[in-house]
Design a protein around this nucleic acid. Sequence first.
DNA 1: TAGATTGTTAATCGATTAACAATC
DNA 2: TAGATTGTTAATCGATTAACAATC
Lengths: 223, 223
Amino acid sequence: MIDDSPRQSALNAPEGVPKAVVNRLSLYLRELQQLTRAGLETTSSTRLGELLGLTGAQIRKDLAYFGQFGYPGIGYRCHELIDQIRNILGTSHTWPVALVGVGNLGRALLRYKGFSLRGFEVVAVFDVDHNVVGSEVEGIPVFHVDELADVMRQRQIRLAIVAVPAAAAQKAADRLVEAGVEGILNFAPVTLSLPANVTTVGVDLAIELEQLSFAVVNRNENA
Amino acid sequence: MIDDSPRQSALNAPEGVPKAVVNRLSLYLRELQQLTRAGLETTSSTRLGELLGLTGAQIRKDLAYFGQFGYPGIGYRCHELIDQIRNILGTSHTWPVALVGVGNLGRALLRYKGFSLRGFEVVAVFDVDHNVVGSEVEGIPVFHVDELADVMRQRQIRLAIVAVPAAAAQKAADRLVEAGVEGILNFAPVTLSLPANVTTVGVDLAIELEQLSFAVVNRNENA
DNA sequence: TAGATTGTTAATCGATTAACAATC
DNA sequence: TAGATTGTTAATCGATTAACAATC
């Protein structure tokens, strides 16, 4: 018989968890979901580390910030660890998300079906273009940005994705802040200036390519 | 008279530059470009730090990995530092880039006009769908993935963007590796297994949202 | 000159790794 | 029991910050 009792729950993160640790947690989650799809019941920190190019020690240390989730001699039960990590990340329940900007990128994000499995669902879209306001895109209603505060309150939206041109991004962010947003995923290639109580994560595609460029150009010297 | 002589050039990065440093370099570049657009000639590490939420000391230390680019008492000449950072990152000349996958995201990336200013240009698109192969998207020719090696050699492509569904990503990466790719920007939510001589940068939108979720949920406790 | 700001060193702080007793 | 693997501690390694002489 396998002991099925739940391990120590970890709803509250201790203070001072490094950002890098939280980022790896997402990687562990993604890989664990992949493993369960492949039919695996359990895995070990060493095995997971091999798949991700990390050491087992680092994985165990990362998890230790939040509690004890493994079984000595056995490893980790995939489903259980998935649930725990989702608890830690706060994605056990689906977050309703606002999308600002229905340009090319915005539409691509709307069509992307991968968010729901990870606990996110775009439930409202905002734009300033009167050609799209009032219509639906991919089944999601498009509102004017003036309605941000109303719709966000009504639908209990706390997170938003900004997918507008660089020149419009700060203004969009300001409106979101007014409307009480708590976190912004920003695709515009600018640094947003935001109050300290709003979290922002930026994704700049050019920056990612620059990192690639640097690595490729300097590969030989660093060998 | 302002001394206009170029500072020490920095074509080769010293060994062991932390990844975080290179990432910040991209941030400095982006912000400097913004400043020049606003008409500024010079700036200081302190000012730049304020804009980016970093300390001046960190910026000076980061730059010191690569050379001396500033003027005591004056700061940095924006245009000059922009050129130097582009040199360091390897984006002084435009990289021709391959895009694999012309789905929603692929098309959105093709329509995005921001790459060229930063030194990247998608010059060839690859897919397996015979409905698009042979056509053009946004003026860029679409080839079958079987032609990867040929086209990449011919157009001297070293970097590629993978924008295919998760299930097809590893296969696409394998083909790129066969064709001699040196760097891959991967948008599929999977860890690619690649030889050590190929660099990969991954962008997973769900992971970014998870980081946001964690930060928002844990904001109060960590205050 | 006085004021500003760099580049660099030393001190501090934080993250990763290695090792191993405890556990299954 | 023997083998495997965890959680955790201590040691190592790396990154950030603060301070300041040198410079313009």
